[in-house]
Design a binder for these strands. Structure first.
Lengths: 210, 210
DNA sequence: CTTACTGGATAGTGGCAGTATCTAGTCTAG
DNA sequence: CTAGACTAGATACTGCCACTATCCAGTAAG
């Protein structure tokens, strides 16, 4: 398949494909001659995946690169690979860096309370959680002390369900793809449902007020 | 309070404050003289809110403007206001526009199945949900037909809990602030917990593989 | 042979979110 | 009363990101 055909079937412009190859998101085509290379179904799949992650999940190109690198490392276990994917997909929005001892302890406590014993003690996501807790505490949002207890079983059920959906009879690249797609697309699905639920419950509580 | 003091207390630069005033995110200070205005606690609160929404939630400036406009409309009920807030916070990532009949019907069916009877029939979020469903169906993600049934009670519980936390004895601006902060910051909280749960469950299923 | 297409390198674009500069008016310390 | 710091508002500029366009010389089909 020539590059223009790849562009046509995926709807991604030739210029963008070249850009992705440059950035290491997509392997170069199999070289047939000096100015001629061949692209196959793998390229189509990969390109479709990249576009969904960017269009739906707004995943930055740098994070896509990290994701690709994670699949490439053949020495890592499937779980290590998934861990790297989680790290890459954590959008690095500028929350207070270097979370203080207190909030970090709260974050660790929440993870322990949830029973998530397999989370790496040095997982970057723990710091991210601590930073978010810091913002919640500082923002004057009414926080009930048992709030976490409400969320944890629900989130645990969602995550367990999503992991169960992954077909583990496939090869690692396909599993990674499902993991990443699930993380991003089902995350958007979840947030969309939550907004709809917010609208419904706000109507129940506040309809007609003022 | 002078503008430099406002900048110092919030950590936002004078130039950025002026930019926010220009964009209509922040009301101009009370004018004392030709080159002198006075800022108060309201400005501090508003500015802190704007920064949290941008830093943690990556809410674009245009959406912040829509949010501000929604609070300003004194004729709308609290529920209408919340509806507009939901619309503004829906990140307009480029998912397939004009969702087809089929996915739109699926989206409506999910809302009905969840029992969210108060959601406006023309709520833009329904189209957003349909678009996401389209992507899920197209992406080759393994989807179990009962998937929605798993999510709905969980999402409903989360949203109901979050709405219950809102202190409805306050004025509409304070309620709006809580609603928006909850939507954005607790949304990040939720996604962070979900990533941690993914890591735990992936370890249970895939540790040591390959 | 001509025309369209190609891989690779390099330079340019558009949008977003600020940031800087300028002007002319105002306040405060000395 | 004046020098220096500060200010509102207008306008222009900047950095970053994700592309997008241009150029080059090689390839291939009609």
């Amino acid at each position: 398949m020539r590059i223009s055909e790849l562009a046509d079937t995926t709807g991604v412009s030739v210029a963008t494909i070249k850009y992705y190859v440059r950035e290491g998101l997509l392997s170069p085509g199999r070289k047939l001659a000096e100015r001629l290379a061949d692209y196959d179904d793998q390229h189509v799949r990969r390109l479709r995946l990249l576009r969904v992650l960017r269009d739906v999940g707004a995943v930055p190109v740098g994070a896509l690169k990290a994701l690709v690198d994670a699949t490439q490392d053949r020495s890592a276990s499937v779980h290590d690979m998934f861990g790297k994917a989680c790290d890459a997909l954590r959008t690095e929005t500028a929350v207070p860096e270097v979370p203080d001892e207190h909030t970090r302890a709260l974050a660790d406590q929440i993870v322990a309370q949830a029973g998530w014993t397999k989370v790496r003690p040095d997982a970057p996501e723990r710091d991210r959680l601590a930073s978010i807790i810091r913002v919640i505490l500082d923002s004057g949002l009414p926080t009930d002390p048992e709030g976490a207890a409400t969320y944890l079983p629900l989130v645990d059920a969602i995550a367990a369900y999503e992991l169960d959906q992954i077909d583990d009879t496939q090869d690692r690249e396909a599993m990674m793809e499902q993991m990443v797609l699930g993380q991003v697309v089902l995350g958007e699905f979840l947030l969309s449902l939550r907004r709809l639920a917010h609208e419904h419950h706000s109507a129940l509580r506040f309809a007609g007020r003022r």
